[in-house]
């Protein structure tokens, strides 16, 4: 069993004003409070804001609501490691965004200038309602305790939960 990583950051991506999109920041905040260690980043509207905030961390946990067609509330953890083709999961190279680039792009950028965290684990919570407004949908609300435990385990050196 590995010991807990020395420097941990936990980033919450999303907006509490887009209902389930607020799950990431909520879980990040609660997990760091419960673990009693680690630094919260966020709420982040754009993964680019990770640059400068997660530099040189031993572990960065990024918590975000996702929309993949699974049952709302389902947790998914993905460790961002290079695949056989040298590409990170979750993103193609080019981006047509007028503002941001995706999480995988931000990590590639951080690596290109040697400012990346040693490990990056994404904890995704399947969302149901991304409309305007505050408050999580019942399924996502019910998944919050498990998501918090998942992040706490990671902070304490455990393996990804799902």
């Amino acid at each position: 069993m590995m010991g807990p990583p020395a420097r941990v950051v936990v980033a919450g991506l999303g907006s509490e004003f887009r209902r389930d999109d607020g799950a990431g920041p909520l879980v990040a905040e609660r997990a760091v409070t419960r673990a009693g260690r680690g630094t919260v980043i966020g709420p982040l509207a754009d993964p680019l804001d990770l640059l400068g905030e997660w530099d040189d961390a031993d572990l960065a946990v990024v918590v975000d609501a996702v929309h993949s067609g699974r049952v709302p509330g389902t947790l998914t953890t993905v460790e961002l490691v290079d695949g056989p083709d040298g590409e990170l999961p979750g993103g193609h190279r080019g981006s047509s965004s007028t503002h941001g680039i995706g999480l995988a792009g931000v990590l590639r950028l951080a690596r290109a200038v040697d400012r990346a965290p040693r490990r990056v684990v994404v904890v995704g919570i399947e969302g149901d309602d991304f409309g305007q407004g505050t408050g999580l949908s019942p399924a996502v609300q019910a998944a919050v305790p498990a998501a918090v435990s998942c992040v706490v385990d990671l902070i304490e050196g455990g393996a990804p939960c799902a």
Binding site: L51, R93, G94, S95, R108, L109, A112, V113
Partner: peptide
């Protein structure tokens, strides 16, 4: 360049300069 990642691969010093400035703003 397709994006900033490609720019960093081609001109790392420029992107590092930009990130340093951004960090000072933060």
């Amino acid at each position: 360049c397709a994006d900033a990642v490609e720019l960093a691969e081609r001109d790392r010093g420029a992107v590092e300069r930009g990130l340093d400035i951004k960090r000072t703003g933060n």
